[in-house]
Design a protein around this nucleic acid. Structure first.
Lengths: 199, 199
DNA sequence: TCATTTTTATACCAGTCAGTATTTTTATAT
DNA sequence: ATATAAAAATACTGACTGGTATAAAAATGA
């Protein structure tokens, strides 16, 4: 909802940097427990007044949604690129594991998965986006398994739906472990073990 | 810390039912998001005055710790019984899966895993207990894998340490899915798939 | 009867929260 | 110049938080 900017001609010129507020918000939600991040603290850190932030984002729900929107935009396409690379099952899984374990933007976990884990504390608009992103991710995973099955690259007994959910949860687990500071090689071993069922 | 009861002879007799307060607290922490449960709400629900609760449990941290203590006591031995049944790998995993998917006390997830997931929001005493329980669980899992390996029942390439962590996380995942209302057969399929790497 | 001890109940404290009313500032249009 | 519009800054609201001061109540001991 940061669209529809009515370039007003009159009145005091806007000085608030919505982009900067979003940056600060993403950083805050990413680094801290969601329940510990308040609109107040974000305003302070971004040096923006509360009324300005509320005019820009409506309410807390709008701010968190905008933050997640901005965050996901940067990251989501990378994963689908890996899944749609057209490589075989083994190569794709290897690339996926590597990405999840080493990408710097996931160093302390993934904001999307963090919000998904604490879904019931989110406002309706943010929650809706979380569910939308989740559906998109699940759909991507499922298409991946359908492709692998149609090319004879995978003969799993489980449905592509369950396989997709499984993959999504194992990725979430690895990211949660990164967030909690677990040893990188241990995370890799656990994720590799989990995904070995597809090889 | 509910021990050392100094059966005082004089003074107004105690009417607060610490047991009832704990019951209410466990129920509240179990059903709701941890951040939504306040000492105030527990006092209201248990019909106990705040000063009485604070005299009994010290502070919020003491209350949450006592609640987790009471909860874990009831449940933890069941899991170790399954792991120490002396049965083979397959039978033990089957029993474990069955327990996690069907036990009524885990219907909406497990309080221990819930607190472990939100560890950084807990007070020091409760957090200490969470870590202690986690170590105990990990130790139990690891001993299980050591036993299976020594009896030639398991030839896994990963270390018993990684296997134990893997098992613990897959159980946590299944319980989180129960907590979020996921379909029981789906949870079972995912957990079975995850643990199939040990068979 | 009356002092002592312990628990209770009530009401309060300071801090934080999300959200907003009010006033001041800064621009443009006439 | 002056009206108007929009945003800014400040300060507020009411609700809730964890925690506590205070005083009344209810028991025992002398």
């Amino acid at each position: 909802m940061t669209t529809t900017e009515h370039k007003s001609l009159r009145g005091r010129p806007k000085t608030i940097r919505a982009e900067k507020v979003l940056e600060v918000a993403i950083e805050a939600y990413w680094q801290n427990d969601l329940a510990d991040v308040s609109v107040n603290s974000i305003c302070r850190a971004a040096q923006a007044s509360k009324p300005s932030v509320y005019r820009e984002f409506g309410n807390e729900d709008g701010l968190t949604r905008a933050a997640l929107e901005s965050y996901a935009e940067q990251l989501l396409s990378d994963v689908s690129k890996i899944l749609q690379s057209g490589q075989g099952m083994n190569e794709t899984l290897d690339a996926l594991i590597d990405f999840i374990i080493t990408d710097a933007r996931l160093e302390i976990g993934c904001l999307f998965h963090k919000m998904r884990a604490g879904k019931n504390r989110l406002g309706p608009k943010t929650r809706e986006l979380v569910e939308e992103l989740n559906r998109a991710a699940q759909g991507g995973y499922q298409r991946f398994f359908q492709d692998r099955r149609s090319t004879g690259d995978w003969y799993g007994t489980v449905s592509t739906d369950v396989a997709a959910k499984y993959l999504g949860e194992q990725i979430a687990l690895a990211l949660a472990q990164r967030a909690s500071g677990e040893n990188a090689t241990t995370i890799r071993e656990i994720l590799s073990l989990a995904l070995s069922v597809f090889r």
